[in-house]
Design a protein around this nucleic acid. Structure first.
Lengths: 192, 192
DNA sequence: CCTACCGATCGGTAGG
DNA sequence: CCTACCGATCGGTAGG
């Protein structure tokens, strides 16, 4: 039973890597199986069909939870420092690991987002150190509900990264540096 | 010659609709052709291969330019009013027409973003009424470069929409209303 | 877990 | 612009 479980995990990991690189329909069961060290037919010992594999991968790898987990390791003495570090750290992470968002894009385009509610239901709520820290620093922050702050923070990061993609590298100069974007966000969030 | 051109446009429009709904590999030449009223083989009178169709569609429909075009129709007496209207209008538009971003997601995942530089080069620069208006209202705005402001604005809208997708409808209550997000942005941008 | 195979569909070509 | 067709590959099944 434990050997079956580990094989299943290998299939999921292999499928994840294929899906984020080539999309759902672009990833064949034969390729997924090969990377997991088995033949395509053997996948059906673990999953009823291809879509069930995607479902399992997406629920496990919904990027919101990877993001909250990264945020948990961010340090900072003041709210400004904590938020600055959070933005820099996450932007770094998402840029060096673009697959994190790719899986979500595949879900939105090829699955019409139909697995999102289930993924949220299964994974929620994460016990977040980061959110706890923000609560402790509330006195430094304008009167904004913490969830709105978190949402705005993650939004700022997306804004950074997606805009970079939008206009492509090499066209960035005229659009301002990331730190300028962070400043706008901090000015909206912090007191004084 | 003009009849050939219009047929080519029909193919592009048909391909666009397929790509935003099913991705690149999920859209077959037969289906694209059928929706354009011809047979698959006839597509090759207009394009050398499938990827050339995608290239042409993406360059024509890069969402940044659709977004700037929508912004051009936004009105407002004060900077606050203009920016508020811009955010509401664009959020509306992107939510009722989600395909606008889908094409970009397909490019990022299945094409590894390789057509983005060409799309920007071909379409730039758009003469933007909206950016002109912002310049005229500069006295109401903090000392922020206008491109940074535009970028931050578009980012706020993405943040709204993508976060909605991330957490799925039905889970929105605890994460704050869109207008609260807009407030954070405006507080970071406007004077006083 | 495998080999062997199914019908369906794919992108693309030949030839008119 | 079409019909007819190519080899390759797809998701999935039979049977062991």
């Amino acid at each position: 039973m434990s050997s079956e479980d580990s094989r299943k995990k290998e299939i999921l990991e292999s499928a994840y890597l294929m899906f984020i690189e080539r999309g759902y329909r672009g990833s064949s069961l034969r390729d997924i199986a090969e990377q997991a060290g088995i033949k395509a037919a053997s996948i059906y010992n673990h999953f009823a069909n291809k879509e069930e594999i995607f479902e399992a991968v997406f629920i496990e790898k919904h990027p919101l939870f990877a993001i909250l987990s990264i945020l948990d390791s961010v340090q900072g003495e003041t709210a400004e420092e904590l938020l600055n570090n959070a933005i820099n750290r996450l932007t770094e992470e998402l840029q060096s690991n673009p697959g994190l968002l790719n899986l979500f894009f595949v879900e939105v385009v090829e699955m019409e987002g139909k697995h999102i509610p289930q993924a949220i239901k299964t994974n929620f709520p994460p016990d977040s150190n980061f959110i706890r820290k923000i609560f402790e620093m509330k006195s430094e922050i304008r009167d904004i509900p913490v969830p709105v702050l978190i949402r705005s923070l993650i939004g700022t990061i997306f804004a950074n990264i997606m805009f970079n993609w939008f206009i492509g590298e090499g066209n960035l100069k005229r659009w301002g540096k990331p730190s300028e974007l962070t400043d706008v966000f901090l000015r909206g969030i912090l007191k004084t």
